[in-house]
Amino acid sequence: MEVERGEFVFLVGASGSGKSTFLRLVLREERPTSGAVFVAGRDLSRISQWKVPHLRRQIGTVFQDFRLLNNKSVFDNVAIALQVIGKPRHHVMTTVPETLEMVGLGGKEKRLPHELSGGEQQRVAIARAFVNRPAILLADEPTGNLDPTTSVGIMRLLDRINRTGTTIVMATHDDEIVDQMRKRVVELVDGQMVRDQARGVYGAER
């Protein structure tokens, strides 16, 4: 299958159907036993181990469990993504607040993750994934731990990010969201793609 630049794709399927593995393959955390994975035009089997970090800098990732650093402030949690790739200080000082503003967390820079609601924590994670303006955003059940209303907010945010030209691949169980968004849906069963539907819905009509 192929995902075009700037597309928004839902990956659906039962647990264990291979959604997360799909995302891990794109991040080159796993390598395919057969076949090839191309990301941003590059064959992942051909890039050397030490170039993998450069690949990951072009990909933002969001998880169900947020994966924030609990002892660091919101600002630091987002800033770390720029710091580890050696961005200059003034760049960090301007970009991080901008991005936090964009995800709707303006003014909460100094909070610690446990002082925020689940939805806000996920926004921090999205800010961290997006602060480097990656071409691709991978989301592994980003709404899995959130209530429906909060989830809708998160989806609006992801939609806005998608409109900036960022390709988004989102693995999810959330049928309501998939049905609402009417984006391309790819369904996996036991690692095989069984459906690829433009403007699709969660449950297949077949």
Binding site: L55, R56, R57, T61, R67, L69, V84, I85, R128
Partner: peptide
């Protein structure tokens, strides 16, 4: 481990970690 896994996720190089 959590911290390094996150750093790796956002593209920190091996040496940097």
């Amino acid at each position: 481990q959590r911290e390094t896994s996150i750093m790796r996720l956002v593209g920190a190089s091996n040496l940097f970690i």
